[in-house]
Structures are given as structure tokens and as C-alpha cells.
Design a protein around this nucleic acid. Structure first.
Lengths: 243, 243
DNA sequence: CCAGCAAATAAGTATGACTTTTAAGTCACG
DNA sequence: CGTGACTTAAAAGTCATACTTATTTGCTGG
């Protein structure tokens, strides 16, 4: 191909590692559907394509394989697996799909997920939240009120995200807590699609305050109910729920 | 150490690959807490421990790293990351933890998760289920009724698991659908801890029939409510919910 | 005491030789 | 023709080694 001097290989790595570079190229390509399920990739082909050694390709393939994105078989090659088998909860896959053409569909899935989880998390938070977490919660809620009017959407978003993170963390359930990033992504994504001039729904803002109060009071039932009202709004926006 | 002849390395692989063997040993060990967060593993140490080459160790480490179980840094080694950073939704990690001393805690987390998801899934299923799926649902529900008395717990479990799988799949949400394995694991785990002579709660059985009816009728509200009653029972069993 | 340089260390990468699995093709026999 | 056993070859899997690069540690001189 192209000679590039005695140094051997071209452009310097730059990233954390070569395998990451391959992964960050192959992963998005597969999840975007550039290589439909059934497509067979051969490692030596990938070596040439990315101009890296077998070592690097194999490491990337191993990771892809652990996500059930591909399957590597002898005498066959690296086969892209059917979509239904992918580890759709893998944060990396979520990230790749959010960055690709599947973004709308992914956002809908994630919204449905968060709408199911958050009310339950709020109920648990009402029973497990520490005083510090309660304080954080009310603080964020008040800040949401303060930034809810006058085109301060970016600032509002920061507190909105923080609020929901605290709820999830305070639930005491490690799996719920892990969904903080997902919720952040959904909330941010929603804001981007909204007209930047429209302020947040005042009722939604009030609901956040109510949730904070309920959690502080240890009222699980109320915390769950108010949170559900918040998430129902999110579902309606995407027509997931019948009006 | 121990000489093993001119062949070079000992016992034949047997598994799908050497890296898997390493993974299936290291993963459980880390998730079980044998190597607490902060522990540093050096690759050449692992090479010797498992009697495999650098290549194999690195591939296993890459996978562990993609799960955020460890972090590999130059001049430092492979460090076990704090528990909060683990990808607790990774099916493999879930499996490892269910097989280890963390099993009870893991089952509680998963039960809370499923209790949050399934009612929402049932509501969506009522709107999206195909006639075939409705048929499957009623069939499994009827089979549950049939096997609910007279120490037929294993048979009952099969239909119970199948029932919940159909609900999750019929929701039309790929992420919900992916939780089928988790629910299966929780249901199975619950049965194991139960006295094998006690038949399932008759009310729970009835609720499954009601859910099937509601889904068939397209009544999302009812499907959600009945499913919630089922999962609330599961929560109470583990004292996650206040009585 | 600190800046900056030097050395040591462990992971990262490349490469070539070899092994193992297995799909696919071949051939003899019914 | 079909069928089953045998052969072949293709591709991943593994290993050993040489070399590169980043980063910590610590030393050294201002």
C-alpha cells in the first residue's frame, strides 16, 4: 500500500490505545447497521483496514464479542450477530446507538425504561435517603424553580439531571443508581429537540419540588406518585403512552 | 513450578478458548471480592498463574476493562475498580455475582428492577401484543393454573418464566425484552429458596390469568395493575417493600 | 524546596511460527 | 446417484520474542 517510512506505521495513536481506536470505529459501524447481522469480517482484512497488528484487532474483537455484537468462529470469521442478541444495556452500545441513525428509537426505549424505573427509585429513596441527599434534592429542586423562567434552559437542565441522579442514587439500589447516565442522556436529548425559547412546563417543575418534599418526609407513596407524573409527561412527549 | 513435559503447556483448553478460561476465573474472583477494589494485578503474574501467553491474558483483561471491572494503566498494572463503577447491567457480571457470595444482594437488586419494569412492560404489551403472543400468554397462564397444585413446582416454574418472557417481549421494547433472562433467574432463584412442598400462592396464579386477559383485551391499565400486584408480592417476600 | 532530567518498569504493539478447529470438497463404495 | 469417510485448506487461536511508549519514581543540581 502506502509506504510511510522506517517508523513502520502511520499516524500516531493519540487515543488511549490502538484497540480503542478500532473499537470506536467498528462498534458504531456495527450498531449503525453498516455491517448488517450475518456480515462476516476477517481479522486480516481488519488488520489492513486499520493498519494495526493482529494483537490489536483481536482485542477489539474480543470486546465486541463480550457485548454479543459479533461472534468469532474458526474457519469462518467474525460474524455480526442478530440485533436481538446485542447487550442493549451496555453503556457503550447505548452511546454508539445514540450517536447513530438509531438515536430516535434508542431514546424512546430509554425513556420507557426510565419511566418505569424512576417512580420505583423515588419510593425507595423516600425510605433510604440520607439527610444529605434530602438536602441535595431540595436544593436542586429549588434551583430548577429559579431557572425555570427566562430562557435559562441550560442551567435548568443541569439541576434537572442532578436531581434525578440523586433520586436514583438514594434509592440504595446499585442498578438503579447506574441508570443516572442514561437519564442524563435522555434529559439532554430531549432538551436538544425542544425549542430553546420555550421554558419548561411549570407543572413539571412543581412536581420536582413535591418529590423532594415527599422524599424528605419519608412518604414513599407520594414520592412514587409525583415521580410517575413527571415521567408520564416524558412518555407522552414521545407518544409512547396513549393520551 | 511443575514440569509438564515437552508439549509446553499443561491441560488441554477444553473450553471455547483460553481467554474464556481466564475470564471465567478472574471475573467471578473480582466480583466476589477476592480482589478488592484497588488491588493491582500484573499481566506477567497472570500469565504464570494461568499458564497462558501474554496474548490470552491481554484479551481477558480487555474484556474485564470493557465491563469497567478493572483499569489497565501503563507502568502501574491492572487495577480493580471500585464497585460503583462496574457495569452492573452486564449479563456476565450478573451471572458471576449470582454465582458468588453476593447472590442474595444481587437477587434483591434484580427483584426491585423487575418489579419496576414488568408492570410497564405489561401495559405496553396490552397495546402491542400480536394475536400469537396473546395466545401464548393465555396458554402459559392456563398451564400455570394446571400445575399450581400438587407439588408440580418445576413444571409451574417453566410456564411462569415463559409467561413473563412473553410479556417482556410483547412490550415491543428491546430493552425490556432483554430482561427476560434476568427475570428467569430471579424466578428460579426464588423457587430454590422456597420450601419445595408448598404450592404457589393461588392468588398469584389468578393474577397471571387476569394479566393474560387484560393484554388480550388491550386493557393497558388493567394489565399494568395486575402485573404490579404480582411483582409487589415478590418485593414483599424480600422485605424490599414495607408491608 | 522545587524544577527538571534520568532510569526503571509495566503495559502496549508488532511479527512470525505454529496449532486447532471446521467448512467444504473429494472420492470410493453401496 | 446418494452417502459416508477421508482429505484439504482456510481462518481463528496461541505462543514466544523483540521492541515501543508512557509514566512513575527518584535523583540531581539550582
Amino acid at each position: 500500500m502506502d509506504e510511510q517510512g522506517p517508523e513502520g506505521r502511520g499516524q500516531r495513536p493519540r487515543g488511549r490505545g490502538l484497540h480503542d481506536r478500532v473499537l470506536e470505529s467498528l462498534g458504531p459501524a456495527i450498531t449503525a447497521g453498516d455491517y448488517p447481522p450475518g456480515t462476516v469480517l476477517r481479522t486480516d482484512e481488519l488488520e489492513r483496514r486499520y493498519d494495526v497488528s493482529r494483537t490489536v484487532v483481536r482485542e477489539a474483537v474480543r470486546v465486541l464479542e463480550s457485548m454479543h455484537l459479533v461472534e468469532s468462529r474458526r474457519r469462518v470469521g467474525v460474524t455480526v450477530r442478530p440485533t436481538e442478541e446485542w447487550d442493549v444495556f451496555d453503556p457503550q452500545i447505548i452511546r454508539w446507538r445514540l450517536a447513530g441513525p438509531d438515536r430516535p428509537r434508542q431514546l424512546r426505549s430509554l425513556t420507557a425504561l426510565r419511566s418505569a424505573i424512576e417512580p420505583a427509585a423515588a419510593a425507595l429513596a423516600a425510605e433510604h435517603a440520607t439527610p444529605e441527599q434530602c438536602a441535595e434534592l431540595t436544593e436542586h429542586a429549588l434551583n430548577m424553580v429559579a431557572t425555570s423562567r427566562g430562557q435559562q434552559l441550560p442551567a435548568y437542565l443541569v439541576h434537572d439531571v442532578a436531581f434525578h441522579r440523586v433520586i436514583l442514587r438514594a434509592s440504595g439500589n446499585e442498578m438503579f443508581a447506574r441508570l443516572g447516565d442514561v437519564v442524563a442522556e435522555v434529559l439532554t436529548g430531549r432538551t436538544q429537540h425542544r425549542v430553546m425559547f420555550s421554558d419548561p412546563d411549570p407543572e413539571a417543575v412543581t412536581l420536582h419540588v413535591r418529590v423532594a418534599e415527599a422524599v424528605r418526609a419519608g412518604d414513599a407513596e407520594a414520592a412514587e406518585r409525583y415521580t410517575r407524573e413527571i415521567t408520564v409527561g416524558a412518555l407522552r412527549e414521545l407518544d409512547i403512552l396513549a393520551p
